[in-house]
Design a protein around this nucleic acid. Structure first.
Lengths: 212, 212
DNA sequence: TAGATTGTTAATCGATTAACAATC
DNA sequence: TAGATTGTTAATCGATTAACAATC
């Protein structure tokens, strides 16, 4: 089980996650060995950067040959903290929230979706992938007796700050905010603002500027 | 209309987008002036970085006072290329695709959603925000007579590569890939892989490491 | 062996932070 | 004026790229 040499920088971490996805696809296709230049081509960076990133793991390939796909994938999983399970909740099971709950392969990446919440009586009581949607009013109770540390926030913008504060109060340590509202949260609770509009915009800009 | 001093670096661009969101919220709340330290607090960086970022725009605030929220927002919009409209399509109107179509405020950020596609006969013919969902087989025709340059790919992973190739062939210049599959596309077509699993994972890691 | 590709160090490049004079 | 906050340059820091000896 590979361990880190030291804690990895943000950019490195992001790339490692992507390499993992590429490796999984290669493994599926039956490939056993991959080289830094192959990964670089798939990710659109340089072999040098790929090797530098892998260098940070306690995994080494074979000079002249390349990396064993399965072993490298395993090292990355471990570097990315997938060895111990992170428990998740999704709050707000409208189209967006329920699409996440249904389609994101959490288990595959060291996470487990443990709870779903909504306020809509039409949704409460139904199940997604075997997880029952609980009423929002159960949130505090449920979180306090669970190990959930991360929540995806998919409620309407108008409810975002309120629900987020309650999540923080109930011991959640990280919130992935898919609403348009910026959140203000107590020290010690991490927030990531996932603005879909921004992502499209960024791409539009890159296209205009002719950047790949 | 503010113009850029030179083309902006990626990290700067991302932050500017976030500042814009913060500014919009402040403007809504009736605030007319914001300072670099206020933005820094909301974004969780330093006043120095905020000023450095704004320095790249052709906008200047007032020493001793701060920035006029509306004007600064306008400069950022312009720097982020929102002055000319980017036309979009979303391919795949399952829960995820239709959630994007319904809830992302594209118009507000210089984009316009012009076309929706799906293969499911239950969905084809219905409308989201006044845009009719066309059958997948219309894709080439529709794109060739439109100005669409960016597409959001929300189809099942198994169809991803095929649809992506057709999009590229039909003249789309940027693809935002929400599927799990890595795409291989011809030179000149930009792809952004939006792996939701990665985003949750990243946050989980940061939480474990105690990084805000 | 010869060719290929890694591991790792050093050099370069770019982004962030600090500092402070200018100015409202 | 005094206090606040900007604009901008210079210093620092970190990330990327280049280079090449080691080795399969």
């Amino acid at each position: 089980m590979a361990r880190l040499k030291e804690s990895l920088a943000g950019p490195t971490l992001r790339r490692l996650g992507e390499y993992l996805m590429i490796l999984e696809q290669r493994i599926e296709e039956g490939k056993e060995i991959v080289s830094s230049s192959e990964l670089a081509e798939a990710y659109s960076n340089t072999p040098s950067q790929v090797r530098q990133d892998i260098f940070r793991l306690r995994y080494t390939g074979r000079a002249g040959q390349g990396y064993k796909a399965v072993e490298l994938a395993e090292s990355i999983r471990s570097a990315l903290g997938m060895d111990d399970v992170t428990h998740l909740a999704i709050v707000g099971c409208g189209k967006f929230g329920s699409a996440l709950a249904e389609h994101v392969p959490f288990e595959r990446y060291g996470m487990r979706l443990d709870a779903l919440f909504d306020v809509d009586p039409k949704v409460v009581g139904s199940s997604i992938r075997g997880i029952e949607v609980l009423h929002d009013s159960m949130l505090e109770d449920e979180l306090s007796r669970s190990q959930i540390s991360i929540a995806g926030l998919c409620v309407p913008a108008s409810a975002a700050q309120d629900v987020a504060s309650r999540l923080a109060y109930s011991g959640v340590k990280g919130i992935l905010n898919f609403t348009k509202r910026r959140l203000k949260l107590p020290q010690g609770v991490a927030v990531r603002h996932m603005q879909m509009a921004c992502v499209f915009m960024q791409l539009a800009l890159d296209v205009k500027a002719g950047r790949l």
